[in-house]
Amino acid sequence: MKTRIVMLVLAMAISSVVQAQSAPKSTPEYHPLRPVSECLRPDRLNQWYVLDNHTIIAKAGPDRYLVKLQNDCPRLGIGQSLRFRANQSNKMTGWGAICGESGETVRSRDEPPCAIQSVSKIDKAEYDKLEDQAVKGGFMTGPHHP
């Protein structure tokens, strides 16, 4: 009798572990770029390219970034427009930095925002290589209005 109970409890425990591992994550995992001073500053953005529906590269001053999106965003870059929006916390710091944190988005003119999953710095060689694969791109001219 004890053996059956132990076996039943063990089977239930294994089943719970398997279900937990196979269940889709409802909240994406974030690994923000740190320190915040290394993050993408939209007010310094001077060039960007859309590589595909999930990937953007951006240049802000001398710094270059690879930006990955959470979902498929097929309308990015329409009208040669791209706008990055910081989350509330980073807006409050005055910098409006885009670090790959929850609540950050990018959008094109008159299109819904796309959630940002991650932001990482890349070097010039990687940026140049990815730029060759771009499907859309643009340059920022004049004042930036986040």
Rank of each mutant, 00 (worst) to 15 (best):
R4K: 10
P112N: 13
L66E: 01
K129C: 07
S108Y: 12
Y49A: 08
Q133N: 13
P62E: 03
A115G: 01
Q80C: 07
A115D: 03
P146R: 02
K129M: 09
R109W: 07
I5A: 01
P24R: 06
S118P: 02
D123L: 00
K59Q: 15
R107A: 04
N53W: 08
G142R: 08
F139P: 00
T55Q: 08
W95L: 00
N71R: 03
S120I: 11
G96E: 02
E126L: 13
S26T: 15
S118K: 09
R64I: 15
V106K: 09
A20L: 12
F139D: 04
Q88R: 13
P146W: 04
V17S: 13
P42R: 10
N46I: 14
Q47I: 03
N71C: 01
Y30F: 15
E104N: 07
D63G: 11
G96N: 01
S118L: 08
D132K: 14
N87P: 05
R85K: 14
V119N: 11
S89W: 09
Q47C: 00
G61W: 01
Q19R: 12
L51K: 12
T27F: 08
D63C: 13
A11Q: 08
P113V: 05
I116G: 10
S16A: 14
G79T: 13
S102L: 06
F84Q: 12
H31M: 05
P146I: 15
L130T: 05
E104Q: 12
D128P: 11
Q80K: 05
A125I: 14
V50E: 01
E29S: 11
P42M: 11
I56K: 06
